[in-house]
């Protein structure tokens, strides 16, 4: 029936379809992450959260999305129109692209590339461009200052993420994400690399501009940071992109430190739960930590933020890389730790 399509194009179309099958649940989970955020924080502050639209307010995110679509798209007169439109497209596309390499189970991965970690690192670094371009193209002071702050914060904490990843690679001996998960069969990396896990988690908070590092947003001083001039779906795309990045960072945390699709225990009924459910549970757990932190901690000052990034995290992670590589090069680590194949 489909003979007239060249085989290469057919393969590509099938791949596009598979990508679609990952992207749609992802966007749905973004919608319900927003709902969960409102509900969880409401519960922590003894409020009810959304209750009006649908049972338990379950249709609230759908209603919000519909409302956003029906809003006017504003392109400020002083903005650079092309860059202004490109910025949200870039943020949104990048936040989806990274999902190509995330493994959901043994062999359950779309792009099983050898340099998966490097790819994730590169894509998450590119995220800065969307913010810088948005801040520059809006030609508004708030947006510009927000973008500068955001970019400086993201690059500072990326170094901590990079060094924490080096530790994971040192232990796993591979850059392939599936291999990294399989290397954690004996013991999850969260145990031998616990300090790195903590630093990685805090750095992902800063990298995704989440509380307590949401300085770019800082409602009281910068209104909403780099996306203040955006409206309608161009704002919606920043929003989707940011939350998809949060989920991505949680997925990275589960893959690098919490054993990805590996079960908590293979005891009894737990052995029958499929891998991708474990993966989803771990992602949900890390996301809950994100929300919990937001409800608990006040915002950092900017100088404190930069101090922690450069003067605390960078030296600690660097020292940890040196120490860990010393132990591995000299074979100090006992086999029981399971960190070496």
């Amino acid at each position: 029936m489909l003979d007239w399509i060249p085989e290469e194009i057919l393969t590509f179309l099938i791949l596009c379809g598979q990508a679609f099958l990952i992207i749609i649940p992802l966007i749905l989970s973004v919608a319900y992450l927003v709902y969960a955020e409102r509900k969880v924080i409401a519960a922590m502050q003894l409020r009810k959260g959304p209750t009006v639209v649908g049972p338990f307010g379950l249709l609230q995110p759908i209603a919000d999305a519909l409302k956003l679509v029906h809003k006017e798209t504003i392109i400020p007169t002083k903005a650079n129109p092309l860059l202004y439109i490109i910025a949200p497209v870039l943020t949104f596309t990048l936040s989806l692209m990274a999902w190509a390499v995330i493994p959901w189970g043994e062999g359950l991965v779309m792009a099983d590339i050898n340099v998966g970690v490097l790819y994730l690192f590169a894509i998450s670094s590119l995220g800065v461009y969307g913010i810088i371009i948005a801040g520059w193209a809006s030609n508004s002071k708030y947006a510009f200052l927000g973008a500068l702050r955001s970019a400086a914060q993201m690059v500072s904490y990326e170094l901590a993420i990079g060094f924490a990843l080096i530790c994971v690679i040192l232990c796993a001996g591979s850059l392939n994400l599936s291999a990294i998960v399989e290397a954690q069969e004996k013991i999850w990396f969260v145990i031998p690399l616990f300090p790195m896990f903590v630093i990685f988690f805090i750095a992902t908070l800063a990298e995704t501009n989440r509380a307590p590092f949401d300085l770019p947003e800082a409602e009281a001083e910068l209104v909403a940071g780099y996306n203040v001039e955006y409206s309608s779906m161009s704002f919606g795309m920043f929003f989707l992109g940011e939350y998809a990045n949060m989920i991505l960072m949680s997925a990275m945390t589960s893959i690098f430190f919490l054993g990805g699709w590996l079960p908590l225990t293979s005891w009894g009924p737990f052995a029958y739960i499929p891998g991708f459910v474990w993966m989803a549970l771990k992602i949900a757990f890390v996301l809950f930590l994100f929300l919990w932190v937001r409800a608990t901690f006040p915002r950092y000052r900017y100088d404190q933020l930069m101090r922690i990034g450069w003067k605390v995290f960078l030296p600690i992670t660097l020292a940890y890389v040196v120490g860990l590589s010393f132990c591995i090069a000299y074979g100090v680590f006992p086999e029981t730790l399971g960190v070496i194949k």
Binding site: F12, L15, A19, F92, T93, A111, I113, M233, S234
Partner: peptide, 17 residues
């Protein structure tokens, strides 16, 4: 697959816009 994701991402953002 990465190219496929890129294509889908661009398509979806275009649709939304």
């Amino acid at each position: 697959p990465i190219v496929a994701f890129l294509a889908m991402g661009l398509t979806m953002s275009l649709v939304l816009l």
